[in-house]
Amino acid sequence: MKFAIMVNEGPYTHQSSDSAYQFTKAALKQGHEIFRVFFYHDGVNNGTRFTAPPQDDRHLVNRWSELAEQHGLDLVVCVAAAQRRGVIDDKEAQRYGKDGNNIAPGFRISGLGQLIEAGIQSDRLLVFGD
């Protein structure tokens, strides 16, 4: 089956990123396709590589990045939600005159159309949120 995943909450504050990650990993293991993972609301905070949790805790951002690298996952952070919350890539940093970017490897910033497209193209859209 072809799944799309939506993550609506930030890492560590809320279970949704963990649950979405565990689901995605399990689905891939069973041979399903993940069309896209879309991060919205505070979920965009899953896409900053500046995250530095204690060493004895899971590193959620790195987990997503590694999963993306292993499986060619499309991890999309909503541009409007990301701008509000200070998650930016190099292009956004230049546009807004910021002194750096913080997007994590494997993530890209794009628009809400990517979410709607994911809903249209996938067999199931799963929302992980509050």
């Binding site: 919205y40 609301h41 409007a80 939600a81 628009g111 809400l112 159309g113 979410l115 709607i116 497209e117 809903g119 249209i120 509050d130």
Partner: peptide
Amino acid sequence: FMYINRHAPCGTIYAVEGLEVVLIGAAF
């Protein structure tokens, strides 16, 4: 598509950002 709105308009950003999805989604 059904957009299910469960949160009050203020207090959290869900309603506002939800509305943004509906307006963008209308183009599809």
